[in-house]
Design a protein around this nucleic acid. Sequence first.
DNA 1: TTCTTATCGATAACGTTTTATCAATTATAC
DNA 2: GTATAATTGATAAAACGTTATCGATAAGAA
Lengths: 209, 209
Amino acid sequence: MKIQGISTQTLRRLPYYLNYLVNCEADGGYISAAAVASALKLNEVQVRKDLATVCQVRGVPKKGFPVSDLIEGLRDCLGQNNVHDAILVGAGNLGRALLSYKGFEQYGLNIIAAFDIKEGEADGKKIFPLEKLPDIINRLSIKIAVITVPGDVAQQVCDILTSNGILAVWNFAPAHLTVPDGVLVQNENMASSLAVLSNHLKSRMEGSE
Amino acid sequence: MKIQGISTQTLRRLPYYLNYLVNCEADGGYISAAAVASALKLNEVQVRKDLATVCQVRGVPKKGFPVSDLIEGLRDCLGQNNVHDAILVGAGNLGRALLSYKGFEQYGLNIIAAFDIKEGEADGKKIFPLEKLPDIINRLSIKIAVITVPGDVAQQVCDILTSNGILAVWNFAPAHLTVPDGVLVQNENMASSLAVLSNHLKSRMEGSE
DNA sequence: TTCTTATCGATAACGTTTTATCAATTATAC
DNA sequence: GTATAATTGATAAAACGTTATCGATAAGAA
């Protein structure tokens, strides 16, 4: 059963739907696409399409969609019903920050080990030396890795990861990573977001002067 | 002079160009769009278009683009030539993590104060109570705010911010924010990224079984 | 100087994502 | 039971972003 073919942009909206639906459950069990759209400032048709892509829940004319079914479908699609174990490489500033952040588990990600060139400890967790990477990845059959190393070594680290079976990389390093086919890189580039922010601010400031 | 109209997606690529160019300056001063494209795994034409949008640097046939001019143009466009002061609201796990992260200044963002319901201290910086927000924003004429509060109070915090003149919000809270016209919300939604990751992993695992 | 060729810049084709339109459906009121 | 109105789902149109094509340009070689 292939559930293939959900576009990235749809996927990125799903957590917003889920968040909204979970906090709005009070309304008697059904909600309309229009209501969701207006709350999330999205287009009504887009909401319907997104929901249709995700789960086989049929909407009922004059009522809307059954909220709990939607939540179930979204959770399932987002993999929040089963937690994935992950490792983190690079226990510098940002790495430690993420290690201490407790919010990931809620979304189905469990960081079970961290690695760095120099051993140490962060947030009560032991930091392993890089040499132990292959062994641990294989032994625990980890598929997800978070990269928080400096940009200039990111590719190198990434190669080690993919050659040991990592299938999904969450890359916080400000660098482009090349990976084998079938491996996904999700870039969480703070610089990119800042670029958008700054630029907006700039045109606002220039516009008003 | 309106520099308006740079698409979000182009903007998000700019930091990659900048990063690459800064680390590749050795080549005699010129670089071709093709070279950049192949290094960053982008389309050659796209690179030309992006660069053309950003700065008025003309490429020279048979040579390429003058690297230092590109860097200058990119830095300027990204606002990295002048640092913006910002504040952070929500000194929980993630907030403290970001406060301790030293990498933002490099990109032109300087977090000068942090706020939370409960006062305290993090990373050597004092955390101010929320009541002080309006005063500090106005006195220092801050335009950028980072939101790292829990999702259920994010909107409320956001309202305080925008009503005091904040023009750009970098939102790490897992919630949709409604803002007045002219204010930009840049969502850094970890959940969205995880959604993409998980889904990929899921279809990979199902595909191979 | 002239020729060759790499590279640009502009324009056009393509694909994807978003938005609009409208007939079909069914809960609710009368 | 019938009419009404809200809502869906499908199809079409529009907007946007990416990729391909091709003539123009100038560097460097002959």
